[in-house]
Nucleic acid binder design. Structure first.
Length: 630
DNA sequence: ATAGGGTTAG
């Protein structure tokens, strides 16, 4: 009875019932302690604990766990020290206290001291190390384990996914299945997320087909990630279809689709869904507003954005947090209202973080405001000393003003802090393979000659259509030497050229890039779409660009500084956001009800190595060698 | 009766 109430979360009722019991046995008291702790009512729990005539391991462990999970690790430790007979569960509960509060060194010490190391504790250590950025150590624990369960696998897969080791996650997921461990929910969620990050529609679909067969696709958690996966792969239509299948949607699912419309530049549609959500009775949360405000930002809806931002607290009872200020800085900045943006930052009730300053910086880049750019970049250097972007930008900025001393100084700091830039690259899926291009016209691809010829030919027809290359973008986050290379050879252009050669007519060409698209490439691709009549979908580090008929769905909001962009007014009619118009984003037919054919062998089960080149994180290579699978 | 693992945005 007591246990039932607690399990159902009815702790108050349980408490009343408990108080009526004349002689309380160990089990009832322990139960009650657990229930109270889960609600954070530690002092009440402690009172019961102290009044118990005798206590066994389970009672002790429950109390320790309660402190550990409620940010009272040190109190937990005191109890742990005086406790007579500890078992594995006690040790694990204590360990979890340290890992969950980010005290990884103490966790590692305790782990080392454990007489036996149960699987649950090892799994906890994997998560602890991994979330703390120590992926190698997480892997080390994994390798040491003689006995693993499905949670062991999914923990490491999750770490790989979260820390940007997409390829390792894929490899581990497939190894897991070869070892006869069936995918569980957490691992499936991680792997779908990986497919989204890689924008690998083919792989994502294969996972989806697995889900359909196992009916996992009906799970509400899985579905939100599934929606996000399709959206990140550029297939908004299928994402929407998955969304529509659910008659009762939770807030996360609403958020997923709203953010999806925002990312694709369908601001009207995002707002529409937002209102639909509100009238359906679902209450928006903080994340909803990140989606909604960024939708306004991407589509230049300054007035709407400001109104929503103002009404967050009063109408929707959601607090404005740093993230929302970042959205507003972005929104104002994109619209060219840089002083307003700066004003907002100065008057924020919370401390501005790297995202806020980053938003201001990219707005400065767009609108060529060097003074504010310098302020923002300097702030970023303080907040994120190890990311290369701000250094390069600031250095380019100084260079443009011939401040060579400052340039040299900055380069020195960069070397001292061991900061290196991430090289720009683009990739495209064709013939069941991923083809990567690093730009600069390097002949790394077997069909290099053909691609160059294609680019030559394209160049001629582009010039006819009025294209003139613009190399004057100082405010770009690529390094000096990249500017020397002919603009013709940027990686995204090469990938697009390859797509024109390989992707059948009528199908969209989907290109991915790890950095933001270069401004010159953006206007070139618009024209390429026009002269070839092809649809090109480019996903860069920030967002999607749908190129069709000489226009881009981003309305050039990201790249306003390019000379030969058509004026915004010419594009206005284009982006009304009706579903019919979205349809052209994908000529693929997508899913038919609940069946899905798998194009090639099921790589997930067969465990072939996946066909991705190492393109996202140069660090992946070295790590892979060190901790080689199999 | 005591220890796990999950969703969205930036």
């Amino acid at each position: 009875m007591l246990g039932g109430l607690i399990e159902g979360g009815r702790v108050d009722e349980a408490r009343r019932l408990f108080d009526m019991i004349p002689v309380k046995d160990v089990v009832a008291s322990t139960n009650m302690i657990g229930g109270l702790c889960s609600e954070g009512r530690l002092s009440e729990a402690r009172e019961i604990f102290d009044e118990m005539p005798q206590r066994n391991v389970v009672a002790w462990t429950s109390m320790i766990s309660g402190y550990a999970m409620n940010n009272k690790v040190d109190v937990a430790r005191k109890l742990f020290e005086v406790m007579p007979d500890k078992n594995e569960v006690t040790w694990t509960a204590m360990l979890k206290g340290y890992t969950r509060s980010g005290r990884i060194n103490e966790a590692a010490e305790l782990f080392k001291a454990m007489p036996v190391k149960p699987v649950a504790a090892c799994n906890e250590m994997i998560m602890g190390f991994g979330l703390n950025g120590e992926v190698g150590k997480a892997r080390w624990v994994f390798d040491q384990m003689k006995e693993k369960d499905d949670g062991t696998w999914s923990a490491l897969i999750k770490i790989y996914e979260r820390k940007g080791f997409e390829l390792e996650a894929l490899a581990l997921f497939s190894l897991m299945q070869r070892e006869g461990v069936r995918p569980n929910f957490p691992s499936i969620i991680s792997i779908l997320s990986v497919c989204g990050s890689l924008a690998s529609l083919d792989h994502g679909r294969q996972v989806h087909s697995q889900l359909v067969r196992s009916h996992f696709d009906l799970d509400i958690y899985v579905s939100s990630v599934l929606i996000t996966m399709y959206i990140k792969c550029g297939d908004l239509v299928t994402g929407k279809r998955v969304f529509d299948r659910f008659s009762s949607k939770d807030i996360v699912m609403w958020n997923s689709i709203i953010a999806g419309y925002a990312q694709h530049g369908f601001g009207e549609k995002a707002l529409e869904v937002f209102h639909e959500m509100f009238s359906s009775g679902a209450a928006p949360d903080e994340i909803t507003f990140i989606g909604v405000l960024s939708a306004c930002g991407y589509t230049g809806k300054v007035k709407e954005g400001l109104e929503i931002f103002e009404s967050m607290k009063s109408k929707y009872q959601v607090d404005q947090k740093t993230e929302h200020y970042a959205c507003m800085v972005d929104l104002l900045g994109r619209a060219g209202k840089l002083n307003e943006a700066m004003n907002l930052i100065e008057n924020m009730p919370v401390e501005a973080d790297a995202i806020v300053w980053g938003a201001l910086l990219s707005a400065c880049r767009t609108h060529k405001n060097l003074d504010l750019a310098e302020i923002a970049a300097k702030k970023l250097l303080e907040l994120e000393p190890s990311s290369a972007g701000p250094y390069i930008l600031l250095s380019n900025l100084y260079a443009s003003q011939s401040r060579w001393k400052d340039v040299a100084e900055l380069r020195k700091t960069m070397r001292a802090r061991n900061v290196s830039k991430s090289p720009g690259c683009s990739w495209i899926e064709a013939d069941n393979k991923v083809h990567m291009f690093t730009g600069g016209g390097s002949a790394s691809h077997p069909e290099h000659e053909m691609i160059m010829k294609k680019l030559e030919k394209l160049g001629a027809s582009l010039r006819e259509a009025g294209y003139c290359p613009d190399g004057s973008f100082v405010m770009h986050d690529v390094d000096e030497e990249d500017k020397v290379h002919s603009l013709r050879h940027h990686s995204e252009k090469m990938a697009v050229a390859y797509g024109l050669l390989k992707v059948p007519v009528g199908k969209p060409i989907r290109v991915m890039k790890n950095l933001r698209v270069c401004g010159d490439c953006h206007s070139a691709i618009k024209l390429i779409a026009q002269v070839t009549g092809r649809e090109i979908i480019l996903r860069d580090a920030n967002r999607f660009h749908h190129f069709k008929d000489g226009l881009c769905s981003c309305r050039d909001f990201c790249i306003r500084y390019i000379k030969n962009c058509p004026p915004i007014s010419a594009i206005n009619t284009f982006n009304t956001g009706s579903l019919q118009e979205i349809e052209w984003t994908s000529s693929r037919k997508g899913l038919k009800s609940r069946s899905l054919t798998v194009s090639s062998g099921v790589w997930l089960v067969e465990g072939e190595t996946c066909s991705f080149p190492y393109m996202l994180n140069p660090y992946v290579n070295s790590l892979t060698k060190k901790f080689c699978l199999v």
